[in-house]
Design a protein around this nucleic acid. Structure first.
Length: 297
DNA sequence: GAAACGTGGAG
DNA sequence: TCTCCAAGTTT
């Protein structure tokens, strides 16, 4: 950062960090006792999934598999089953695969290095940065949907960030990131928390916002989002819904499942077959004999 | 870069 | 009821 902006940034940092220390939620993966594995598990579960729904699954998961080696020792299908209705079950498979890689290639310890984290199954740019920052207290740009929205409003004066992450967003986040690693790590989670609790997507609580006075969006009079419409997702009638129904049957039946049990959840046999093939291709379902399926061993 | 990938709660 | 959205990753 430039020297002229430094006093301004220091003030911003202090304000947000003070807000965080007063308002941060107490979440199990933020406890001092939570190690890198706990952080990694929480990050996988939190991908596109609200905290409220993650909490109970997370608790059960960590009790059952307290270390990567514990999870790696279990069949992948057990991970898929324990994932329950969290959604995007491929995450369970990838978390299991990540645990296996950590056990076999990293001596059972979650890697410290951002690049090594990124190489793990299911770990993308965000999750690698989050684990390196939150668990290992390193300095990284952590850009999730909350942070992008906060900066879009605070810095760019827009209601929402662009559809896809841009270089400009990365630059903004990098410039605002405190120099000291420990401070940067807390700043990252603090901005995220601000986006989750105050600077929310639907109805932001600007009256509670510690940086409202500095907010470009507020200064501009809260202009409504203009750009291209934000992607809406349809679900009813899609292959996704069928996959969900099929996998639910497999999860709840402990053991092998006959074709007839799967046939009963969706009438359209063409779509049903396509969905089942997809699940098998993804490794979420294992054919054990003609017309017999189960979760992967 | 677009599209696929689950599920449930809130407004 | 129906749309929007939630700590993204992979192909």
């Amino acid at each position: 950062m430039t020297d002229t902006l430094r006093p301004q940034q220091d003030a911003l940092h202090r304000t947000v960090l003070a807000w965080y220390s007063a308002h941060a939620r107490e979440l199990p993966w933020r406890e001092p006792s939570a190690g890198p594995w706990a952080v990694m598990v929480s990050e996988f579960m939190l991908q596109q999934t609200p905290v409220k729904r993650v909490l109970p699954m997370y608790q059960a998961w960590m009790e059952r598999w307290p270390t990567p080696a514990d999870l790696a020792a279990a069949p992948a299908g057990e991970a898929v089953r324990a994932w329950g209705r969290l959604g995007y079950p491929r995450r369970a498979l990838r978390l299991h695969a990540a645990a296996t890689a950590i056990t076999e290639q990293h001596g059972g310890e979650v890697p410290l290095d951002h690049a090594a984290l990124l190489a793990l199954p299911g770990v993308g740019e965000y999750t690698a940065a989050a684990v390196a920052s939150f668990a290992h207290r390193q300095r990284h740009v952590v850009l999730d949907t909350n942070v992008r929205r906060v900066f879009a409003r605070l810095v760019d004066g827009r209601e929402y960030p662009p559809v896809a992450t841009t270089a400009a967003e990365r630059r903004t986040a990098a410039e605002l990131l405190p120099d000291e690693p420990e401070t940067a790590a807390t700043w990252a989670v603090a901005v995220m928390e601000l986006g989750a609790l105050v600077c929310t997507a639907r109805t932001p609580a600007c009256g509670e916002c510690p940086v409202a006075r500095e907010c470009a969006w507020r200064r501009a009079g809260y202009p409504a989002h203009d750009g291209p419409p934000r992607k809406g997702q349809t679900y009813a009638g899609t292959d996704r819904q069928v996959r969900g129904k099929l996998l639910a049957v497999l999860r709840e039946a402990h053991g092998e499942v006959p074709q007839s049990a799967l046939d009963s959840v969706w009438a359209d046999s063409v779509q049903r077959g396509r969905a089942l093939d997809g699940l098998v291709a993804d490794g979420l379902v294992e054919p054990v004999a003609p017309g017999v399926y189960r979760l992967p061993g």
